[in-house]
Design a protein around this nucleic acid. Structure first.
Lengths: 201, 201
DNA sequence: CTAGAAATGGACCGGCAAGTCCAAAGAGCG
DNA sequence: CGCTCTTTGGACTTGCCGGTCCATTTCTAG
């Protein structure tokens, strides 16, 4: 039942997704025309609908999944190794760097706020991303607790939830205002707060 | 040069904005058709373009401004009176309550992430909102510092920036996942953190 | 080599929704 | 009471863009 794709087909499909992703980053989700994707990727309409029978919707979803994965990959190996304060700071730096470079071009942009409306598929992609992201942070906090660097009374889940929210909001404000200050403030203050909590223990 | 609007005209214009706002809340920005607004408000196309000569764009911008103002109004009188810990908690409760009630229906939704792309007008609306919001929080923190409830070393601006980002992210996650947990965590943990900072002083 | 499946190209269709236009109704004013 | 400016109604135009369709070429297997 899985589509019969030859190697060539596979490559074309990937090219379409990548091209669509680039297009979205540059122009925004709702500004993407199938035609633009075709032009950029050197494909024809027939191909688009051959690889994404459901049409635009399906393509967009594939792109979303692709970009969501990328978000986490871009944070590696830091995100999975939050095992010391220097590691946390390295992660912090990576985030700042990454989003500073990305600027206004957030590929998931259109999705985030409208996940609910864009159908259950989009919803799943977004919640999946957030879930994995938060889980990684939680594990980092737990690890720091195991080494005594973070107070055991800290509710790792709640703290991770707050930090994740802060990051999202920081990025959102970067998107809105062009300033990275909010993201920086969140990361620094939250990490500081986790850190100083150790004294209590 | 300000448009010559009779009282009746003024009323109609307001009705259109309100109707469009409602429509956006229910269906999302990009799903709004002029036709829907007409139907809901009992107006004709002639009227829409009479009151908003630039068309949809201009109408949407008017709605955005309207809703942005509402966001802050909804937080009053708490937001302007963050002068004691009970007051902060009351504000917290109001936020939770408001966004819980609102659920997925965020009128500014489409704007937030795409302010940059939606033209300078939208950008201005969003940054203006964020600016005013953050300023109010900053003033709250400063006041608490003046009464010794928050340590003087706290950088009020930075702390406010972080809190604002947290709130935005919390709302975003509410929109994406339907859960209010993130917003709650941000508010509680951040306020706690500000509170415990007092001990240091 | 060849049959069948996959991949590709691109002409064409159809609907939708923004925006235009003008005619007519209503309201304020001397 | 009639002039003018605002308000209103709604038919019509127009361009865009997603989606359909089929002819053609390329690939793979036996």
């Amino acid at each position: 039942m899985t589509r019969a794709l030859t190697r060539k087909g596979e490559a074309t499909r990937a090219r379409i997704v990548a091209g669509a992703a680039a297009e979205i980053r540059e122009r925004g989700v709702d500004e993407v025309r199938l035609e633009d994707v075709m032009a950029r990727t050197g494909t024809s309409k027939g191909q688009l609908f051959h690889y994404f029978p459901e049409g635009k919707e399906e393509l967009l979803l594939a792109v979303a999944q692709h970009e969501a994965d990328q978000v986490l990959i871009d944070q590696e190996p830091m995100l999975s190794n939050l095992t010391s304060w220097p590691a946390w700071l390295a992660w912090r730096d990576r985030l700042i760097e990454r989003y500073l470079a990305q600027g206004v071009r957030c590929p998931l942009n259109g999705l985030l706020g409208q996940a609910g409306r864009r159908g259950p598929g989009a919803q799943a992609v977004v919640t999946g991303l957030m879930w994995r992201w938060q889980k990684a942070i939680t594990e980092g906090i737990r690890h720091m607790q195991s080494t005594g660097d973070i107070a055991p009374e800290v509710d790792a889940d709640r703290a991770a939830a707050a930090l994740l929210a802060g990051i999202q909001g920081g990025v959102l404000l970067l998107l809105s205002t062009g300033k990275i200050d909010h993201l920086e403030a969140v990361l620094d203050l939250t990490i500081d707060s986790l850190r100083s909590g150790a004294r209590t223990a």
